[in-house]
Write a protein that binds this DNA or RNA. Sequence first.
DNA 1: TGTTATGTACACCGCCCTGTGTGCTTACGG
DNA 2: CCGTAAGCACACAGGGCGGTGTACATAACA
Lengths: 203, 203
Amino acid sequence: MTELEKGPTGRRRGRGARERILSASQQLFREQGINRTGMDQLCAAAEVSKRTAYQHFTGKDELVAEYLRRFDPSVLSGVLDRTDLTPRERLLAAFDIPPTTPLCPYIGAAVELHDPQHPASQYARDYKKAVAARLADTAREAGAADPEQLGEQLALLLDGAAARTRVVNADAFPTAAAIAAVLIDNAIPATAGDDQRQEKAAN
Amino acid sequence: MTELEKGPTGRRRGRGARERILSASQQLFREQGINRTGMDQLCAAAEVSKRTAYQHFTGKDELVAEYLRRFDPSVLSGVLDRTDLTPRERLLAAFDIPPTTPLCPYIGAAVELHDPQHPASQYARDYKKAVAARLADTAREAGAADPEQLGEQLALLLDGAAARTRVVNADAFPTAAAIAAVLIDNAIPATAGDDQRQEKAAN
DNA sequence: TGTTATGTACACCGCCCTGTGTGCTTACGG
DNA sequence: CCGTAAGCACACAGGGCGGTGTACATAACA
């Protein structure tokens, strides 16, 4: 990526600086955090002059908010939209995250910025609610008795796994997946599933 | 508080500056975060000269680490040590946190500092493991089939509730408590409990 | 009483941060 | 080919940060 594709729309004549900036943000904000990544370093990594960066974004705050908006299609939605899996399998697949992912950036942004009014914090809040809603949708599709509750529970498990992985420095997603399996099997009436019917002590 | 009690041990002749510094840390680090709280502001709040602060702590890093060490006895241990509750009730009581608590400071520190080698991060890691161990002990006492697993699961739920409460800006501990109830009832064999024996679909 | 540990007041340093001002170069589109 | 918008290089402002040096005040204890 970042191979100076000048942008899909045809506008912007030069070499797409904005894309490079956002691409570098993805990497640096994840690796180092938001507060510990200066604009100088970020512009250097993006091979963009600082002046140009501030012509694309009014300030770091706006850049951070825009950086957060670049995760939507990729992370979770892809899993929940897969049609080759049963709804129950999709819910469980949400916990099969590759061990490379360091920490949910939304949690990181909310903690680092520490201001609920910050646009990035607001977006993080919206996103988290949207994830819970999507999980609830899939839960409903899977025949859960109380889809909203199950969606909220699974969202909490995802957040817990992300946070605990960060703090303890060990992958906590398998534990979360085990809990999710119990919750899902408990929430789906016995008649709902077709092939997915193990006993609840899946361990 | 902060009424210049000169310290219980009798040592330290002046007015207890160290206590005031740590007391102010508790408040400011929680309210504003670590990175967003400068030493100037902290010293002003503690009514302590900056020079004195740096005579008590070699640097901000050491102060942060010491600040984290001031939670141990109060937060969770108190609940798990209560003898007037059954082990199962104690496990559930861990999720009855007052809505005042903003965020688990250990998660906040680990995210803000962003360096696993930082002494405060290491202490946060140790503490989180200790909490899981204590939960496992209580789980064993409650007769759980796999106490370590249940302890780790409950710890993950606590972290998830804390993180999600912060991001979504709404209390997530009731949801976590509901999950905990399911897990506990699933993990404890039917013959173990005496009075604590409801069916698993507690909802 | 005097010594010493403790705390204070205040100025100061160097660093890095976000953010700009100015003038120059490049690439695209007509 | 030229005009213009996009990008670049560089220096700098202004401020907050962590941290220190110096000289002075006070409290505890001998």
